[in-house]
Simulated scan of single mutants.
Amino acid sequence: MGTLELRERNNWQTNSGPKGLAGAAEHKLFQAFKKAFKNTDYEITEHPKELKHLYDSFELSKEVLEQIFTPSDEAMQKAKRLGWGVSPDFAIKNKKTGKILFGEIKRQDGWVEGKEPSAGRGNAHERMCKLFSPGLIKAYREHSGINDLEILPFWIVLEGDITRDPKRNREIAFWFDSYTKNFFMWRPNMTDKDLIHFFYQNLKPYLD
């Protein structure tokens, strides 16, 4: 890979990573909801810990255990303290009902005016697909208290050029199928009010 290609890849990783614009998008979302929830029954927390140790005590079969690496008890405990689980970007909680909506914000580039189709590269949106796995959906429902089957127990907010990319919009809408309330394209022409309005119209009723 040439020097120019490496520089372009590093720039993309910086802008898309947690220390770049993705982190800024997350902060923007958090501040918007924190302001909207002032003096209400709702609260938003960053990086909730409820699911941090989700896999720690999951029991593997004897057959599997015999075929994998077995660390010492001390090493295992040290590793587990870091958390074997998932860490959503945020959680919105109804303090009266105790119900929680876990959420993630994904910022990614995309194919828009003046760019080539390759501008839509990146896998931030693909990393959310783990949430569709049977095990995580079950765990999210148990911890969130959201058991209504017409809704998924998580919310994805997407930001950046991906929200206007013709391929990615089709791809993501296809993944979610009829669960249109569970993702939001926070497009550049939108404000905090659009984000808050979407939540109140589509997701708040499931926390009441």
Rank of each mutant, 00 (worst) to 15 (best):
M1E: 12
G2I: 09
E5W: 05
R7D: 14
N10H: 13
W12E: 13
Q13R: 15
Q13K: 15
S16M: 10
G17N: 05
K19C: 05
K19P: 00
K19F: 12
L21H: 10
E26W: 00
K28P: 01
L29R: 00
F30K: 09
A32V: 09
F33R: 00
F33N: 00
A36I: 03
D41L: 10
H47C: 12
P48R: 04
P48T: 07
E50H: 12
L51P: 01
K52V: 07
K52E: 12
D56G: 03
E59K: 14
L60C: 06
L60G: 03
L60N: 08
K62A: 10
Q67T: 11
I68R: 10
F69Y: 15
F69D: 08
T70Q: 15
Q77P: 01
K78L: 15
P88V: 06
D89Q: 04
D89V: 01
F90L: 07
A91R: 04
I92D: 01
N94V: 04
T97E: 03
I100W: 02
I100V: 15
I100R: 06
G103E: 02
I105Q: 00
D109A: 13
G110K: 02
G110W: 05
W111D: 09
G114P: 01
G114I: 06
K115R: 15
E116V: 10
S118K: 14
S118F: 11
G120A: 05
N123I: 12
A124M: 05
A124D: 08
A124G: 06
H125W: 08
K130G: 05
K130S: 12
L131T: 04
F132E: 05
F132N: 07
G135Q: 08
L136R: 06
L136K: 02
K138Y: 09
A139C: 07
E142Y: 13
G145N: 08
I146G: 00
I146F: 05
N147F: 15
D148Q: 11
L149A: 13
I151N: 05
L152H: 01
W155L: 05
W155G: 00
I156A: 03
G160E: 02
N169C: 10
E171V: 08
I172A: 02
A173K: 14
W175Q: 09
Y179I: 06
F184M: 03
R187F: 03
P188K: 11
P188M: 09
N189A: 15
T191Y: 08
D192K: 11
D192G: 08
K193L: 12
D194E: 14
D194Y: 09
D194H: 14
F198K: 03
Q201A: 10
P205M: 08
